[in-house]
């Protein structure tokens, strides 16, 4: 039986990735930091999407890739959680 990943786990893993791979450590990115205002660009977004695909075996639908959904690690984690639950 497949175990569902908890929202907290998703958030922790995503936050770790974003802090290490995308942003300057000095920025101190938190789960509720506005990612776009902190300098997110198209390639960084693609990196995040590929990370999600590899880590959670999940392709985010194009309709969900917008400013509201991609605003912060919290928002993206929530989206991942919803999509995993509905799988």
């Amino acid at each position: 039986m497949q175990t569902k990943t908890s929202l907290d786990t998703i958030e922790a893993q995503l936050l770790d990735f974003v802090r290490c791979e995308i942003y300057d450590p000095c920025l101190g990115i938190e789960a509720d930091t506005h990612l776009i205002e902190a300098g997110l660009d198209s390639f960084s977004l693609l990196k995040i999407l590929v990370f999600i695909e590899k880590k959670f075996d999940l392709i985010i639908p194009e309709a969900e890739i917008n400013e509201d959904r991609m605003r912060s690690v919290q928002h993206i984690s929530q989206l991942i959680h919803e999509l995993l639950e509905s799988k």
Binding site: I22, Y23, D24, P25, C26, L27, A38, G39, L40, D41, F43, S44
Partner: peptide
Amino acid sequence: SIDLRKKGSRL
């Protein structure tokens, strides 16, 4: 060209 700097930094 793609800037390889971590986002939020110009160093």
